[in-house]
């Protein structure tokens, strides 16, 4: 019995691998996308319970993808956590303005990320 479905949007394979492993070990199903455009497509087709979104990606960056996800009625209620190497306060503010629900910096601790995800899914 799955605990939920996580959509991981990141152009770097090793991050997809790690999240596939970390979430999988906790009983979540993981689907992945490699850029913002694919992320939005999969958000609509896979209907995940939560989206983990990188910022620096080709074709469409995470801020733009987040804005679109949060304004589209099909996806606006899916919580979005930005997971990114960009960790300055100005980056966090941009994330908040784009409508993200949470923000974590890479390198991240899987335990902490899963804690945040579980907290968000309870609500």
């Amino acid at each position: 019995m799955s605990r939920g479905k996580v959509l991981v949007v990141d152009d770097e394979e090793y991050i997809q691998h790690i999240l596939n492993f970390s979430f999988g070990a906790e009983g979540y199903d993981v689907v992945t996308a490699g850029d913002g455009e694919e992320g939005i497509r999969k958000a609509k087709s896979e209907k995940p319970d939560i989206i983990v979104l990188d910022i620096m990606m080709p074709k469409m960056d995470g801020y733009e993808a987040c804005r679109r996800l949060k304004t589209d009625p099909h996806t606006k209620n899916i919580p979005v956590i930005l997971l990114t190497a960009k960790g300055r306060e100005v980056d966090r503010k941009l994330g908040s303005q784009a409508g993200a629900d949470d923000y974590m910096v890479k390198p991240f601790s899987p335990g902490r990320l899963i804690e945040r995800v579980e907290g968000m899914m309870k609500r």
């Binding site: 991050i15 890479k106 991240f108 601790s109 899987p110």
Partner: peptide, 13 residues
Amino acid sequence: SKRVTQFAIVLAE
């Protein structure tokens, strides 16, 4: 270095 750091944190945790 970036990948090694991330994998190392995942493993150590």
